[in-house]
Design a protein around this nucleic acid. Structure first.
Lengths: 255, 255
DNA sequence: TCTTATTTGTTCGTATGTATT
DNA sequence: GAATACATACGAACAAATAAG
């Protein structure tokens, strides 16, 4: 139908559907017409429609399922404010719940986090960042799988040198009031500086499986490091979130 | 050739080529074999190879040109450290040159920035952020087009209320020593707090043209705001960079 | 449980269009 | 103008996952 010429058909079809989704004409969670139907509507063939849907899938607007159909994403964009997450008052106010819970509840959704703790061998880059010796590359791994309204939205893996964490509450699933940052302080490894690196990258198999991502849907990786006053990195946490789903906020004083 | 089954051919082809590019077997800037050649190499048809190349193009690893061929990206990943950019000492050390120059030179590349200044009507969101009255929606726009070794890598547009900037050096192409932040201070609008929001979004036509992006290559948008001690936003700067090209660094003290 | 229909995923072969050299 | 190279689209076919009976 829309034969503007010069703009590929599959993009024009994607444009129309994107617009209908963003305007709410097609409700979140609802199922799109089947590809043959859409093909008829746009006077195109099924492979062309399929390509248009692939565009929207990569953008994170829809999820396609063989045999089931194509659904519009339910989850709205989530905001993450880095400084507030680690602020002491905020941590204590949150009680046993972390910043993630606050972020999700502010959207009227129900957060859920599953935490797994184990002694494991960290990736080389993490071992190097933590300054682990070649012969002692084991660390406490704290892996958190986070969901909003039962939809997976974040995967975060913390690494702490075994030397510091073994036998402490850092190696327990429940990290106690104020979170692990408070535990670090009590153990004599107070974190005085935080750094985060943000980049876009392809998702790993694990991330694709847990977050329900397609091969071509990238994630934003937030590489978070906690430093002591001696400039020692005592904690590395790697957050992976669907790239289209999160907005990151940073806020700092200008000296 | 690679018939692992279960993984689509076009992805297997993309995997092989990506690996060869990342290992350096195919040098940055070099031209890939033509699609029919690749089709022969992988025992596939040209549309299948074309789809594999489309994957790599979306990832930003290659650029395709009709009639010319397919080239491997020349530019390495660029690092941007937010706090250092705006630190007073760093700004003065950089002299007339900005943080961007430092970021690019540290990669052994030659930075170039073209600045355009004009009185213009800001987007609604910007006007709202700056608290502009409905009847006076004009602002000084400072648009910077930034290149590394003559390759466009960033588009940044600053907006300053006309009330503040008109007739000052903020409305000149050369913002003077220490950059516009120093000018704000001299004018009585000292910025004491900075905020940045980072998100992934589709690129606009202007960004696609300047940055040489395809329709499906997203950008990272950094929405930077400078605040006075009265919590007034006096400057909004929107940075748009190819999503695959930049890593962002943030660094702050933990109180 | 098994079978069948539905729905999306992929690939092919072919053809045509468009930009560059 | 001709050759080259990528972009798009069609129609057909088969595969794989899911749902319905």
């Amino acid at each position: 139908m829309p034969l503007e010429k010069s703009r590929p058909q599959y993009r024009q079809i994607a444009d129309v559907l994107r617009d209908e989704i963003e305007r709410g004409d097609i409700a979140p969670g609802s199922t799109l017409p089947a590809e043959p139907e859409l093909a008829a509507r746009f006077s195109a063939t099924r492979p062309t429609v399929n390509r248009a849907l692939a565009v929207l899938s990569t953008e994170g607007l829809i999820r396609t399922h063989r045999g089931r159909g194509t659904q519009v994403r339910r989850i709205p964009v989530i905001h993450r404010t880095a400084m507030a997450r680690y602020d002491r008052k905020a941590r204590e106010r949150n009680g046993a719940h972390g910043a993630f819970d606050t972020e999700i509840r502010s959207l009227g959704m129900e957060p859920r986090t599953e935490t797994e703790v184990a002694l494991a061998t960290p990736p080389d880059a993490v071992a190097e960042a933590l300054g682990l010796a070649k012969d002692e590359q084991s660390a406490i791994m704290r892996k958190r799988r986070m969901q909003a309204d039962n939809v997976p939205v974040q995967l975060a893996t913390s690494w702490i040198p075994a030397e510091i964490a073994t036998g402490t509450q850092l190696a327990e699933v429940d990290s106690g009031p104020g979170g692990i940052i408070s535990r670090f302080r009590e153990l004599g490894y107070e974190q005085v500086r935080l750094t985060e690196s943000v980049r876009l990258r392809r998702s790993t198999d694990e991330e694709q499986e847990f977050l329900g991502l397609e091969d071509d849907q990238p994630v934003v990786e937030i590489w978070h490091t906690g430093w002591t006053k001696d400039d020692r990195a005592v904690e590395v946490c790697i957050h992976a979130v669907p790239a289209y789903l999160w907005v990151l906020h940073y806020d700092w004083p200008l000296t």
